[in-house]
Design a protein around this nucleic acid. Structure first.
Lengths: 118, 118
DNA sequence: CGCCGATTTGGCAATATAACCATAGGGAGA
DNA sequence: TCTCCCTATGGTTATATTGCCAAATCGGCG
């Protein structure tokens, strides 16, 4: 990553923010195997319909999904397959982080145990 | 990306949330060329010192930076170089999104112009 | 021991966000 | 046209977050 100017940082932050909610990630997850309409997504996620609609609007604004009206339905789809590659990478990062945190927690526990024994 | 369970989604969302603020991205940006203490980061970012400290605490909690106390100073560093690779990829995604949005805005403008002329 | 610089923490006001409810809009078909 | 189904929007409440200020904490040093 080269040094980023303020505009780029703002765009970057907006993109990350769109991905920063479990509900939205769950919605994106339901779109992995192709486009779906709002009703389907609502059912698959178990969230309220209005809620799903709002999250979809947000994802659309962020450019993460595309929308296409077909009759009375609106179908949403992943705009860019790179989104999932991204999640792959982040999953790797998260795994490393959790591992590190677990390791340091273990070390701390051991030290505390030592103190207790001294 | 394989289908993710709820726990993974939560971790993923937390990671993205940590990256979803321009101020935090700016802080991470200052750490690209090596570790720095809070005072240095405060000066480089131009934010309030307490504010920087809180953001650093959040980044540390999220596992994105490491901290090491040296005397009265606390030095922070990027925990994982993959963080920057991630930003690279996202920058690519964002660039495509902005491009698409610009293109559709242009198309819309042209259509509106056509309507105006008809 | 007490001071001093560096960092963290707590309190506060303003803003943003998520989920829920009810309701409005919009196209399809009778 | 009227109705039905799907989707979007407005309103509300509860919660989270940001940035700033002041104060507390922590380590080192005279």
């Amino acid at each position: 990553m080269q040094a980023l100017d303020d505009s780029a940082l703002t765009h970057l932050a907006a993109y990350f923010r769109a991905l920063s909610e479990p509900t939205r990630l769950r919605i994106l997850n339901t779109l992995r195997d192709g486009e779906k309409n709002v009703g389907q997504i609502t059912e698959l996620t178990g969230c309220g319909q209005a809620n799903v609609s709002k999250h979809l609007a947000l994802l659309f604004e962020a450019g993460l999904v595309t929308r296409s009206a077909q009759g009375t339905s609106v179908f949403y789809a992943i705009a860019d397959e790179a989104t999932f590659e991204l999640c792959d990478i982040v999953c790797g990062n998260v795994a490393r982080i959790v591992e590190r945190q677990f390791a340091s927690a273990t070390a701390l526990k051991r030290q505390l145990g030592t103190i207790g024994r001294s």
